[in-house]
Every structure is written in C-alpha cells, then in structure tokens.
Amino acid sequence: MNKRIIALEGQSSRGIRWPSIFLTLAKYRPALWLIPFVLFFYLFQVAPMVWVFINSFVYEGEWSLVNYQAIFDSAFILQSFYNSVWISFWSSLVGLILAALFVSSLRHLNSRIKEAIIAFTNMSSNFAGVPLAFAFIIILGTNGAVTLLLKQWGVIEDFNLYSRWGLLTLYIYFQIPLGALLLYPAFDALKKDAYEAAALLGANPFKYWVKIGIPILSPALLGTFIILFANAIGAYASVYALTAGNYNMVTIRVASLVSGDLFLEPNLAAAISVVLMLLLAFITAINQWLIARSYHGK
C-alpha cells in the first residue's frame, strides 16, 4: 500500500514523466501478500537455524571453536554420533531392501488388493513415535507376547528391547512403510517388455535384475535411502519414549543439553546440531555423486 502512495505522489508532483517507476512499483504490489508468510517462515524456521549456526561458534560471549573442540574431546558425544549413524545406516538399508521387495511383489497383485495395501501402508506410516514405542514394549518387551512366543519356540534366548538391537528393530519397522511409499511410483519405470525382451534373449530373472532392473531403479533407491537415513538420524520421539533418554543418541544429547534438568549448554547443543547437519549434507553429497554416476553408467 505504501509503495503505491509513494508512486502516486511521484506521479502527481512531476506529472506523468515517471510512468516507468509507477509501473515498476505497481508490479511489486502483489508481493505484499507474501510478507506474512515470509515473516512467519523467517521467525520460526530460518531464524532458529541461524541462531544455532552462529551460536555454535560462541563460547561464554566470545567467538571460539571451544564447542566443536568439546565434541571431539568427549567420548560420550562421539559415542552418540556413532550410535545414531550405526542405527540410521542399518535401519535404512534393511528397511530399503524390505520395502523394495515388498513393492516389486506388490505390483504383481491385482489392482483392488494393491490399492487396499497401499492405503494400509500409508496408514501404518503414521504409527510412529511414542505410540509405536509403547506397542513395541507390549509385544517385544521383557514380558511381551512375541518375546515369550519366540522364547518358547527357542528362537531366541533373550531379547532386550532397550538395547541397540531392540532399537534397530523399532527403526526398521518405521522405515518400511516410508520406503515403500517413496519407492512405489519409481517401479513404474520398469516396463514389462524390458523383462520379456531380456527373457527372450535368455536372461534369467536374477540376471534381469542385476543388469536391467536395479540399474534403472538405482537413482530412486539411492534417493529413498537418503530420505530414510535423514528420517532415522533426526528421530527422537520413539527412542526417547522407549529408553526415557537413557540410550545415547545424537538427538537425545542435543535435547538434554537444552531442556534437561541440569547442565544446560545450548551452545554445545548448537555445535552438535551443526555437526549433525554437516554429516547429513556430506551423506547427501555422496549420494548425489552416486546418482550422477549411475546415470553415466546407463
């Protein structure tokens, strides 16, 4: 509105010698509608990130790298990174493989069942966080029904849900539906004639997958892997609800440094956050490189 008034004033005092300015300003008038959105997005998305980045380099009011030094000196924080990366990597890999098998088989079923199953997968992708952790305690906890069943059958000696393997199981569970939903559209790229042509030329299904199927799908598989990995490494609710913050993971460390009962160190939390984001950026970069290479391979 203001811009318009200014433009009008300019016009009246100097006649119509400045129509170009009027036009330029009028052109930007609709942009005023963007301001509320930009403001909220800045305040609640961009500004917190900027705060984290800047304050990771501040220690007791002065610029320094002490926070970063503290990360690499602390075996405890390094362990949290190791645990997070370990669980994220393996849960993404296993989740991706299971989701890919699931989706590729799903395409052979008739369309009504297919639709119902996709709807169910979509629904189960919402079964995450605190409710999922509780469900896992019921079925796989110390006295959980499945734990007892597996013990009775002698499949397992003992199962500790609150350990690394228990968490891995939980993570794989929430990666499968997400992976399946992301991969499902990509499998459209596999044409039936390609399979038939390969079969005519004497390729067995194994060879078809190694030489044709997986190369075609590899950008989608790599892209999905990175989303699953980011999803796992940022996860907080399920591990917090399952272990009450006792299992050492990066997100648990960050949260306890800003909202724990004692020893609040927001700037150290900021530095850990920046390292976490750099790690994600690094893995995404490797991934992009692999995707580019896979296109060249074709």
């Binding site: 500004a47 917190p48 705060w51 984290v52 940022g234 907080y236 960050v254 939390a269 900021a270 956050s273």
Partner: peptide, 8 residues
C-alpha cells in the same frame, strides 16, 4: 530435524 530447530 525438529530437535535442531527447537534448540534455536
């Protein structure tokens, strides 16, 4: 990750 945003 939401944990990172919530620090800021």
């Amino acid at each position: 990750p939401p944990v990172v945003s919530s620090v800021g």
